[in-house]
Design a binder for these strands. Sequence first.
DNA 1: CGCTTGCCTGGAGTGCACTCGAAGGCCATA
DNA 2: TATGGCCTTCGAGTGCACTCCAGGCAAGCG
Lengths: 156, 156
Amino acid sequence: MTVMDTTRTRTDTCGAPPQPHRLPDGQDRYTISEVVAVTGLSAHTLRWYERIGLMPHVDRSHTGQRRYSNRDLDWLDLVGKLRLTGMPVADMVRYAELVREGDHTFGARFDLLESTRRDVLHRIAELRDTLAVLDRKISFYADADRTRGGATAEED
Amino acid sequence: MTVMDTTRTRTDTCGAPPQPHRLPDGQDRYTISEVVAVTGLSAHTLRWYERIGLMPHVDRSHTGQRRYSNRDLDWLDLVGKLRLTGMPVADMVRYAELVREGDHTFGARFDLLESTRRDVLHRIAELRDTLAVLDRKISFYADADRTRGGATAEED
DNA sequence: CGCTTGCCTGGAGTGCACTCGAAGGCCATA
DNA sequence: TATGGCCTTCGAGTGCACTCCAGGCAAGCG
């Protein structure tokens, strides 16, 4: 990505989460290919997100090309996180709509986030459970390896 | 489920994990609808699992109907847990194949489980990360609710 | 004996989240 | 001037994990 290399500046905001690839606010006008590079999403997907209403309105250059801002990147970050909680895209679109509708939807957004949070907690618990099962099986196979031909009970 | 009620016996193995719905070994010949009831999977899905090779060979009644054993239930339990780690069905089929191939695949099974374990750990970390973001946003909205019209920074 | 219920099979269909391709066009830099 | 990166619309294709359907057999009941 030649574009990336030429536009890069040393400004690493040493703030809370060490966000790399970020230009200071005011110069944050990333092309789609830059966003592809930082998010790992495809250009197709980015345009598709916009079509389905999953993005706040993305700015355009005078020639009509997309120019993403730091806020857009933050939003994509959130979307990415929500996506790997298993939240369906439709629900994220719903949240995006609430944001577009303005401040009077704060309550609804709060509720949505709260229920997502409960969901995530639940999933973490499930995964821990699975981990326990996995550990049991793993130690079974580790034992089986040492006690070659011993009286190993049935296990899969 | 009339079937379930009539076949139920009081034998609750007070062993380690208090598995309900289990008949003592020897009489464990569950119909597909019983398995549907305990696993939450559909009969369609159960048959599909078999077709794609995700089940060890399930026994049949003299009329050709499936009769699931406690071992089958255990297997389905494992499958369920693996499924919610996000493991693709194809990988589970691979594991099932290893089991069918016999004891000489212990090493491969161990490796597969280990890598799944790493995966689960990774996903838990991701979810925790997401949880942190969620918590930040939630407390933002909670604050916004109290400091009505205050100098709230931009947030989505 | 016929009806209902439960189960069987193979194959087709569904929903989600992308993913890709084609066609045609604008703009800027080498 | 040519090349490369981006734009649009639009529709079709992909992969996954089911999900459903049509057609048919076997057992139990009134």
